[in-house]
């Protein structure tokens, strides 16, 4: 479980997060939604120790962010970098192998090689293993990066708006891959319908505060859209999942 307690964060004079406390359950997919500037990405970056905590505390299971060594946390929690604008000239195999770096810090063992091979196979990357990342399509590159996170074998996986620049096929396939990972996934999403369709738990944020926490059916309502996003939209129920008419 990720436990966020009384986290306040300021950048310059602006308050990005004010006294945020929330518990993100272990297992399943949790989506963070909210308008631009709500503080979703900042919260995610704080959990992933990408930016230092100013006040309050965050724990991931028994590890305390800030106190726990970065390399120990790297075996507990992974964050998928936003699809790099300039992809490094690494092969898919190189990239996935780097997912094992927190374990071996350089020289991979036989076990690491096995995990990399299994991961490549599982994500259907065997044919692309020798290709360089900058020669792949956006969807393929995203798949390779998720494969790297998989090889990292962490209990928690964080993602910040991974669907940017992906078409519908790549987006759906990524969300399914994330569900199939079997890890605790925390994901910042812009598209509420993706959150509603693939998340077990939704956290809605507004103005640096938590506005609502619950299942998609509880959270995605016409009232919430009006309150949090300031837009009036019709919400349909399809197969027990709310769907926003856009």
């Amino acid at each position: 479980m990720i436990k966020v307690s009384h986290v306040t964060h300021r950048i310059g004079g602006a308050t990005i997060l004010s006294d945020v406390s929330v518990e993100l359950a272990a297992g399943g997919v949790t989506a963070l939604i909210g308008p631009n500037g709500a503080g979703k990405s900042t919260l995610l970056s704080l959990i992933a120790r990408l930016i230092p905590l100013q006040s309050g505390s965050i724990t991931v299971d028994d590890l305390t962010i800030g106190a726990c060594p970065s390399d120990v946390l790297a075996r507990k929690l992974a964050i998928l970098p936003q699809s790099a604008d300039a992809a490094p000239r690494l092969t898919v195999r190189d990239l996935v192998s780097f997912g094992r770096y927190p374990y071996h810090k350089g020289r991979g063992t036989e076990e690491d090689a096995q995990i990399v091979a299994q991961t490549l196979h599982r994500f259907g990357l065997n044919d692309l293993a020798g290709r360089q990342l900058d020669t792949l399509s956006g969807g393929q590159r995203q798949r390779a990066q998720v494969a790297m996170i998989h090889a990292q074998s962490t209990d928690y996986v964080l993602l910040d708006e991974p669907l940017n620049n992906l078409d519908i096929a790549a987006s759906r396939s990524l969300m399914r891959m994330l569900r199939a990972l079997g890890r605790t996934v925390v994901i910042v999403l812009h598209d509420i319908n993706y959150a509603s369709s693939y998340a077990d738990q939704i956290v809605a944020m507004k103005d640096g505060r938590i506005h609502a926490v619950g299942t998609p059916a509880d959270v995605v309502t016409e009232d919430l859209l009006a309150d949090v996003f300031g837009t009036r939209a019709t919400v349909h129920q399809i197969d027990g999942r709310p769907l926003v008419q856009v």
Binding site: A48, L50, P69, S70, A74, F98, Y101, P102, Q152
Partner: peptide
């Protein structure tokens, strides 16, 4: 690979 990727791997 960038700062985020580095921190992610515990570097």
């Amino acid at each position: 690979m960038g700062r985020v990727a580095s921190v992610n791997l515990g570097l």
